[in-house]
Design a protein around this nucleic acid. Structure first.
Length: 263
DNA sequence: CTAGATGTTAAGGT
DNA sequence: CACCTTAACATCTA
């Protein structure tokens, strides 16, 4: 489930489980997640070292070692972390298994292999090389407004473009637009200042709620779209039928009554 | 059996 | 250039 809030939760999980202990081994079960490095390089960069701290930018998690390298984790559509002692708790789709000196393991699980495990020397350089936009949790209002009003694309497309704003994916994009009563196909540069302010506030509200509720839609407030994000479901605000349409190839769920293009 | 699913990228079209 | 659509990656589920 990895969008910004999910990755922020993984970061907390990593901090609570995997810092300050020596990595004793790394088993690469499926090298497809390594994308641009070898298993040998992953091991030589991390084995014998310990993780000291973490950072997040958009959907990427970075873990700093006591050496010169950082571990990079991206979770694709189906990735997550699991920390355990006994291998009978291992997961079917563990792609990389980190082992620590205390006998515990950290599994990088990624069913669809769309995620990435990498090693880098500088998160800031990596963020630049990958052309990532401002983190959607950290961005200032002035920058946010500049970003939105500088794009002629559909607002949902702008929000989800990682080179413009990093961290928003399909489901939280829908939630932010639902909370802000904006139609997903509204042209970004036609939004009024007041609407952009509203969207900025709602973006933060959604992040806080999602992290607070451990990104579990069942625990979200009833006024949220996410628990009702299904074809034929009813809008939690006006009871109209939720509709779908395609924006940049992804399904957008929205309420045709609450979210109209002229608001 | 088929279509679609939280992500990203490449290729091609308007 | 800015934007959109489609396809692809591997696997599971409705």
């Amino acid at each position: 489930m990895p969008e910004l809030p999910d990755v922020e939760i993984f970061r907390g999980y990593f901090n609570a489980t995997s810092l300050h202990q020596k990595t004793t081994g790394i088993e690469v079960r499926n090298a497809k997640v390594l994308k641009e490095i070898s298993a040998r390089k992953l091991r030589s960069a991390l084995v014998g070292h310990s993780f000291q701290s973490t950072r997040r930018h958009g959907k990427y998690l970075f873990a700093e070692t006591d050496g010169t390298n950082w571990l990079v984790l991206h979770f694709g559509m189906t990735g997550y972390l699991k920390y355990f002692k006994n291998l009978d708790e291992d997961e079917k789709h563990t792609r990389v298994l980190f082992s620590f000196a205390n006998g515990f393991h950290l599994a990088y699980v990624c069913q669809r292999l769309l995620g990435e495990v990498n090693v880098i020397e500088s998160p800031d350089d990596f963020i630049k090389e990958r052309s990532m936009g401002a983190d959607a949790f950290d961005v200032s209002y002035d920058r946010f407004k500049q970003i939105i009003s500088g794009s002629t694309a559909a607002i949902k497309s702008t929000l989800m473009n990682q080179e413009i704003l990093a961290g928003i994916g399909n489901i939280y994009g829908d939630e932010i637009l639902f909370q802000s009563k904006i139609h997903p196909k509204t042209k970004s540069n036609t939004l009024r200042d007041k609407t952009i302010q509203c969207m900025y506030r709602n973006m933060h509200k959604v992040w806080r709620t999602a992290v607070d509720k451990q990104a579990d839609p069942d625990r979200f407030p009833r006024t949220y779209l996410l628990p009702n994000r299904a074809e034929g479901a009813k809008c939690p605000r006006c009871k109209q039928k939720i509709q779908t349409l395609k924006v940049i190839g992804r399904t957008a769920y929205f309420c045709p009554k609450c979210q109209n293009k002229n608001s």
